[in-house]
Computed example of a mutant assay.
Amino acid sequence: MARYGMALDYKSCINCKACETACKEENGILMGADSHRIWVGTGEIEGQYPMLDIVSNTFYPSQCQHCEEAPCEEVCPTQATYYDEGGIVRVDPEKCILCSYCMNACPYDARYVDNRTMTVDKCNFCADTRLARGETTTACQNTCPTKVRIFGDLDDPNSEISEVLRTREHFSLKANLGTKPKLFYLT
């Protein structure tokens, strides 16, 4: 069975929002909605010694980190948040009671209330749409004009994501928390 993850070549992001639009369209989320499954944030990166005066704006695509030790899954009182067979952190809307424990536990702010279903939702790597249809890319990866996102099976040594993670330096957000995110930022 696959163990899915995503690598982000974030320095290639041009903040066009095509990924956000594709995600909303794929998942039936209103285009004007403020809360959604993925987003592109803006941050500042400061240069390292000896060039500490260099500061540049950087775009950071982000979403659920699909942690192997997901705090949101641990605190869910109804087991609405669970891992599927591919290690994707999912939400069962039938079990969600909107207690928001998962929202509070998520260190990545990746959970939000879906006002259509009145459940707490998040990215699921298109598991119930594209992957369920046998496709091998997520909507956000498929639409990105600068190829920022690489999605695939982390356990397949021949997959594109495995090759990229073997050959390029990368980091995970808040790795010090021990959540073991499966979203990797390429440097």
Rank of each mutant, 00 (worst) to 15 (best):
K180M: 15
I161F: 00
D34T: 08
P71T: 02
K24H: 04
C13Y: 01
V40W: 07
A80Y: 09
K17D: 11
A175C: 08
M103Y: 06
R116F: 11
G87D: 00
F151V: 07
A105I: 08
E160G: 04
S162F: 02
P145Y: 10
C140D: 05
N176A: 14
E20L: 08
V164M: 15
L173R: 12
V91Y: 01
C126G: 08
E135Q: 15
G152L: 02
A18M: 06
G87R: 04
M6V: 06
A70T: 04
M6R: 02
C72L: 05
E44D: 15
G5R: 00
Y4R: 04
T58R: 04
K147Q: 07
Q63D: 15
G152D: 07
Q63N: 14
P157S: 13
L8G: 05
Y112P: 04
P107G: 13
M31W: 07
Y112A: 11
E46A: 11
L30C: 07
L183H: 04
I14M: 08
S56I: 11
D155L: 13
S172A: 15
R37Y: 11
N115I: 09
E74A: 14
I29P: 00
Q65L: 09
D109A: 14
Q79N: 14
T81S: 11
S12I: 06
I14N: 03
Q63I: 06
R149S: 10
T146P: 03
G86Y: 12
L173M: 11
E160R: 09
D9P: 00
E85R: 01
L183Q: 03
R3I: 12
P181W: 14
P93T: 03
R37W: 12
G32N: 12
K147M: 09
K180Q: 14
D9Y: 01
N176Y: 14
D128V: 10
C144L: 07
N15K: 07
E68V: 04
E73C: 05
C76D: 10
L177T: 12
T129A: 02
G152R: 01
S159I: 00
N15L: 06
Y101T: 11
Y101K: 11
K182Q: 10
Y60D: 02
T42V: 14
I97T: 04
I14L: 08
G178D: 15
E69P: 02
Y112S: 08
E74N: 11
C102G: 07
